[in-house]
Nucleic acid binder design. Structure first.
Lengths: 354, 354
DNA sequence: TTGTATGCGTTATCAC
DNA sequence: GTGATAACGCATACAA
């Protein structure tokens, strides 16, 4: 039926206009008279025309594609980031070509080549394999989210601030011993700032603290085993002390919480837990977890805003125009739920105002 | 530096070959002599050539694009499906253009138009808005996953079988009262089969049962409230009876499990719970949940396999070739964990063999 | 084994 | 306001 492809040529013959006029109808309709527009409009319907954006992209150099390289989508954080990014189609009209990165640098570079072969107008990089120094060399608009970004534009959550808020909250609640549990983080990764934020806050408040860095392995089992060991150690070493534990993510915190519940059947006052990420799991657990939200929605909105700016800029002036590198930070939010509560002592009252 | 775009023309001049020969180097290299190949190979490096797949696609009609329309990515199930689908790039080489569907039919149809404008070779539809009858009319290879599929090729999890396995397991374990909790499911949706599978199995085994359909609302709060009411009812109506509860998904089951733990501090023998989906949460809960895995990996592998077949077929014969509609089912898997266990009575021993 | 000519469906540059 | 013509970068039928 409508199998044969209708092109501008067909419409031109049908309407007795030229190809150029048909093209103008789409790109600069104001140049056409009202009647001409109406004639073409009708012809499109009569002939059942469907646009070919490949041809368009080839001719004008604008693919409307944005590439995304993301480590995976089974982690809540990445899934939500991708979710939000894809949602911006309505606003900006860019289509997304998505690749799963983080295998190794070479493979990821092949992905970028593939994306470039389709003339992507911009790239959003969440994967960690390619140093920012090399990303710059592709000479296209790139924005990174939550990764090493020394030489390139980026949007990051303010990890330092997030850690400060979590730590201060635990201190305000009257914890006497602060513990931070984290995994091995690559140098330059923004998440490292959480450790600094934690330690600085403890020192400033003159409170006892300990930073525990573990290798959590690559499987659920290893992670659970590691948390279990940490739990046993806590029970043994800090029994009777009011502990405030700040975990690097919600999963570690929930695993810990489950161990506590299995042993006690409830969360003893001497334990206060704070997670990170505000993943769905933080609300599906036996007690709803106090956590730090990275404000993913703002993170992605900002990322797209900046990327669109860069892409627009590029269309106008072909002059490279050396703008200083942009590192934007999004302030996280402490979400207080049921795994932290003020202990009944003076400290928690005075700390807030001092 | 390497800003100017190198084309086949440049390579042709550089090597004293013609454009066609350069093209052949990429598409039918065997036709070239070894020396010619070597010369061109070197020229590509010297000139720093980068292929333009837009031009290629325009010329040969093969975009290498597959469109995906998926309701969202914050639900574990969809996130994992997308994760797996994107992972097939290594195997098949198709690039994925991803859209978030399920707003309404009109918008989703616009997405499809957009995808068609980029000459996608095939479409994977997970969203529910567009009836299969209308999907067929686009006249391109389409495969649906877990949705209404009357008029179109599809891959579905065998929901009936999944429900049977879950129910039979509860019966074998000695439950005297079977309950199935589900939400309001649109007609024709494959998930409906779970209800049938549950009820049929109960009837066959002559065991008491009840099917509870609730409107779980659109927010976490509403869902929790509904589960809470269901829990209270269970406690009141079926106290002392060995209940086997089969939930439509892991989230409902976990919410229920949390309520039990908050009340009792453990899972009493009179409760046995089975979820559905094998979401990550099933293993992060206070007790690891017995659940039915949809075998997402096989679901997506099969989907891509079939889609690739259809796409290949289409390239060869332009004859529409009426093949019968394919409805493939993937067998789910019962994953037994800590929320079910055989009760000590004869029943659990004999039931299996009868 | 390689070259010539034409087409893919648009946009862009002039010209009228 | 509108039209002719040359790009865009590659593929392919037909020659040689």
């Amino acid at each position: 039926m409508s199998s044969k492809k209708i092109t501008f040529d067909d419409i031109a013959t049908y309407t007795n206009f030229s190809k150029s006029t048909i093209s103008r109808y789409f790109n600069k309709p104001d140049l056409l008279s009202e009647e001409s527009q109406e004639i073409i409009r009708q012809a499109l319907i009569d002939l059942n025309y469907h646009e070919n954006k490949l041809a368009r992209a080839l001719a004008n150099g604008q693919s409307e594609f944005v590439g995304i390289i993301i480590p995976n989508i089974y982690l809540d954080y990445y899934a939500e980031v991708l979710n939000q990014l894809l949602g911006t189609f309505e606003k900006h009209g860019y289509k997304f070509l998505v690749f799963l990165g983080d295998k190794n640098k070479e493979i990821e570079k092949e992905y970028i080549e593939e994306l470039l072969a389709f003339n992507i107008e911009g790239l959003i990089e969440l994967s960690h394999s390619i140093p920012s120094k090399e990303l710059v060399e592709y000479n296209i608009p790139v924005i990174t989210i939550e990764r090493e970004d020394e030489n390139i534009n980026s949007i990051n959550s303010d990890n330092y601030e997030g850690a400060v808020m979590a730590t201060q909250h635990l201190i305000n609640n009257g914890c006497d011993m602060l513990i931070h549990v984290n995994t091995i983080i690559p140098p330059n990764a923004p998440a490292r700032k959480r450790i600094e934020g934690f330690e600085d806050t403890c020192i400033q408040n003159k409170v006892q603290f300990k930073t525990c860095i573990y290798d959590f392995g690559n499987s659920r089992e290893e992670t659970e085993e590691t948390i279990k060991q940490f739990f046993d150690e806590c029970e043994k070493l800090y029994s009777g002390i009011n502990k405030g534990i700040f975990f690097a993510n919600d999963h570690y915190a929930i695993k810990f919480l489950n161990l506590i519940f299995k042993k006690y059947g409830y969360l003893p006052d001497e334990y206060q837990l704070v997670g990170y990420d505000n993943s769905p799991i933080a609300q599906d657990s036996i007690l709803k977890l106090t956590t730090v939200s990275q404000q993913i929605s703002e993170l992605t909105t900002e990322a797209m805003r900046e990327l669109v700016l860069m892409m627009e800029e590029r269309k106008k002036s072909s002059s490279p125009k050396k703008i200083p590198i942009l590192h934007k930070k999004v302030k996280p939010k402490l979400i207080i739920r049921d795994t932290t509560k003020p202990l009944n002592n003076i400290k928690s009252l005075t700390d807030g105002s001092m």
